[in-house]
Amino acid sequence: MKVTLHIWRQSKKSTKADFAQDGKMVAYELEHVSADMSFLEMLDVLNEQLTKKGEDPVAFDHDCREGVCGSCGVVIDGVPHGPERGTTTCQLHMRSFRDGASIYVEPWRAAAFPVLKDLVVDRSAFDRVVQSGAFVSVNTGAPQDANAIPVPKADADRAFDAATCIGCGACVAACKNASAMLFVGAKVSHFLHLPQGRVEREQRARRLVAAMDAEGFGNCTNQYECEAVCPKEIPVRVIAEMNREFVRSKLVEEPPSTKRVGGDG
C-alpha cells in the first residue's frame, strides 16, 4: 500500500513561549508499505529512506514495541495512539489504514510536555508527579509473606485496573484541556484499594494534586476523551475517586499544631 504522511518536524527543543513556530508539518510519500507492518515499522522504513537521502530521520520514542513500556505514542489523525481502541502506537498496524491514506502524525501537545525533537516530548512532568506521592513509604528489608495481608479479589482488581497505567501520556494528549487527571487518578486509585496504600491516603491525594497543578496541566471537564484513547483502557472512575480523595483529604486536614491549642498536647 501507499500512504502520504504529514509529520511534525522540529529540530530543537521547544521554548516555553510560542512553540508553534518551532517546527512545521512536512509531507512524505511512502510506497510499498506492507499492511502487516506496525506503525513504528512503517516509520522505520521512512527513516531508512530519509537517511539514504542524507536527510534527518524522524525522531520518535519507542522501546519494547510490545505495548507494555509506555515509551511510544504519537497523535495519529488527531487521536493519540491512532484509530484502534486499547492499543499503543507500536501495536497499531498499517492494515488499520486504507491504501492511499493521508496520515497526520504529531507529538503529544501540552504545555507540560515540551517537544524535544520531531515526535519526542519530555514527559518528566509525570515522573515529578509520581515522585510527589505515588508510592508507599515502607522500610525495605526482608520481604513479608505474600499472604500476610489479605486483599479481597474485588479490591485487588480495582487497584490493578489503575495499576495497568504505563504512563504513556495519551490521556493528556487526548484531553481537550491537556489535563493529566486520568494519569493522576490512576495513581490515587492504584493505592486507594489496597491496605498498604490506604495508610497515607490523605497526604498522597494532596501531594499528587499539588504536583499535578504545579506542572501546568489543564483541568478535567468530564469529556472522557482520555478513557477513549488509553491503551490500557483505564476507566474515568479513577478520576471520580481522585476527586473524592482530594476533597476528603482537604476536609480532614488540620492546621499545624500550636502549643496549648487543640487536644494533642
Binding site: 489523525d77 504545555a111 472522557y224
Partner: peptide
C-alpha cells in the same frame, strides 16, 4: 479561571483535530 488554565495547558493546537467520544454539549460549555 479554569478555562484560561485549560487554554494555557495546550498552547499549540493539533493540525488534525479529532473527537472520539466527547459530546457536543461538553465541548460547547
Amino acid at each position: 479561571r479554569l478555562s484560561r488554565a485549560n487554554k494555557q495547558a495546550r498552547p499549540v493546537p493539533y493540525a488534525s483535530e479529532a473527537t472520539v467520544q466527547a459530546t457536543f454539549a461538553s465541548r460547547s460549555m
